[in-house]
Design a protein around this nucleic acid. Structure first.
Lengths: 345, 345
DNA sequence: ACAGTCGCTGAAAGCGCTTTCAGTATACCG
DNA sequence: CGGTATACTGAAAGCGCTTTCAGCGACTGT
């Protein structure tokens, strides 16, 4: 497993000065042919290009950033990257970032949850041209501070702190939950619907829960606190929640998990307990991650345009960086996708 | 969807000079208290810290990089981030990167596959302290060039180009395939085993295919070219491959897909065609992504330590950056995980 | 009492680029 | 033919940091 270790010695990198010397011009000229910022004689261009090739010259990004005072980089702040929710999320962001010709710096939260608050901010205002924040890692007051400094920030799946106008893009959670639960109630006559919520402080989870309460109320179904469970938007969380539900023997004919991963866990627990889904208990989720159609039975859920959301968020950020303007809020419509776990054939 | 657009005006950032002025010291002193590189009087430290707080000062990363001549950033080169394989991969890398106190710059390949080859290399030798390369995006000759320059690079799921000693970390694919197929052959008596391979040029896929051939040979099963299909390590690819297989009516009693996502697709196609899995056709995959245990039936596969691999790769890179040494090759053991899709109860 | 140390600090040189600014040579206009 | 724009180029001044270098005072040891 550990054969010959390998060693390395660094080689001095070429700088713009080397190129200039080799081409017999000044560094200003080299800079000009590289950036095409001023007319340069064809013959000179040729010489410079040639020198660049010979020396395999690549400009030192930091020097460039320092001189032009921008980084052409955007930062992405993520919670711990756990679920498959991140695959489309990252794709969307990456697409937008590449389209804009920027680079992407990623920073994720520590599992422990405690943030590193040091003087050297990894994604601070100085290291990137803007920040895409997905997670509750950054506290409201830090966001506010950033906003007040006019530093470009956009929020993904989280709304702006009061007092700020930070652009955000989110799903229309309420409408999704409404469609989902009404389907369960009207089409399948379920009324004892458990809700397995996401982590404390997660806005999506909060919105979904309050929509859940609204729908129950609208149908005059009393809310049974025993049907409300925690999880954390993870498979294990969903599994544990359902285990608890079953252990406590609380009657229920449907489970709505705040997200699909939890639904997967719920399904696992239900099967292990010998419950038939959907006959005895229906299960529905939210998000429609790629996993969902493969579940057994295939999961009825709400399709959230995950990739689109992150793509648009990144685009907003780019707009904010380049034009100093963006849409305050982008609310993305979601769509009910009926598969079999709700009881439909 | 697009309410009031929001506008922003930038605010001038504080520099070390501002801090120095406010604290009534020289910038050298400020730098020293920030970096703790030389003794500074307690009272002075206090004044500087205070000034830093007041001004909300964060050092300009580019300036720092330029001065110290390192970026404290590592670059990650990914293929298009498509499958859930990336979730553990990113986690592992992120963990290692954070442990080492570095930042992570991500660059993924263009979907079209053509690389941007411009003078301004996004992840070039100048923008990061080292590169973690997962994908065949970078050609062998570019890797070689980097290696010759002594630029730290480590390869993930890809072996070093001939002539270089670039460290790499990979799975022990052959052994995994052997265990998997021998199980299929010995325990379940399957002999017409189709193989759905990954994308051209993917080393994992190549290794798995050649191991497949070896195992067949060892069991004196003739290789039927009709049983060899392309896909691309995607769900859709696996689905399409199996559709083709069925359409051509080629007899087969098992399908081995080069990865689990493709297995998920295969399962879908099989079910749609009314084939019973595993009774009529067994299906096995490779990787054991989180999805696999949820498939219907749960997928027998080979567990590859995806997160560990990327974690170790990142650690090797850090070692290479800091100590100029690393292990030439790290081969990670894999493990058969038997579920129901092979025919086991 | 004096050289040698040590704690602490500021001036200044650089890191590798971009970008004015100034300048020369050539073209073009009336 | 004088004047003015135009193509092209180099010197030099930064961008915001780190890091020598040198210096000053206060201690130490002999």
């Amino acid at each position: 497993m550990h054969p010959e270790p390998v060693a390395t010695r660094r080689v001095q990198r070429a700088t713009i000065t080397d190129v200039a010397r080799l081409a017999g011009v000044s560094i200003s000229t080299v800079s000009r042919v590289l950036n095409e910022t001023a007319p340069v004689a064809d013959e000179t261009i040729e010489r410079v290009r040639h020198a660049v090739d010979i020396l395999n010259f690549t400009p030192h990004a930091a020097a460039r950033m320092l001189a032009v005072r921008k980084t052409d980089t955007i930062g992405l702040l993520l919670p711990e990257i756990g679920s498959s929710f991140f695959v489309p999320t990252l794709r969307g962001i990456e697409a937008a970032v590449r389209e804009a010709g920027l680079d992407l710096l990623i920073f994720t939260g520590t599992p422990g949850g405690q943030r590193r608050r040091e003087w050297r901010q990894p994604l601070g205002e100085h290291n990137t041209d803007g920040l895409l924040v997905f997670s509750d890692l950054l506290e409201a007051r830090e966001l506010t501070l950033l906003f007040q400094h006019g530093f470009p920030v956009v929020l993904l799946h989280r709304s702006a702190p009061v007092g700020t106008q930070i652009p955000s893009v989110r799903f229309d959670n309420r409408s999704g939950v409404r469609k989902l639960l009404e389907h369960l109630i009207r089409e399948h006559g379920r009324r004892r619907i458990a809700f397995v919520r996401g982590p404390e402080g997660n806005e999506d989870s909060f919105a979904r829960e309050s929509a859940y309460r609204e729908v129950l109320e609208a149908h005059e179904i009393p809310l049974d606190p025993a049907l409300l469970m925690e999880n954390g938007f993870t498979e294990q969380g969903g599994e544990a929640a359902v285990q608890r539900l079953l252990a406590n023997n609380v009657a229920c004919d449907a489970i709505f998990t705040g997200d699909d991963e939890a639904a997967a866990g719920a399904l696992l627990a239900l099967r292990r307990a010998g419950k038939r889904v959907p006959e005895e208990i229906a299960v529905v989720g939210f998000d429609d991650v790629p996993l969902s159609r493969h579940l057994n039975p295939p999961l009825t859920t709400v399709r959230a345009p995950i990739e689109t959301a992150s793509y648009l968020a990144a685009r907003q950020l780019v707009r904010l960086i380049r034009n100093d303007t963006a849409d305050a809020v982008t609310l993305l419509p979601v769509e009910l996708v009926v598969r079999q776990s709700c009881g439909c054939p």
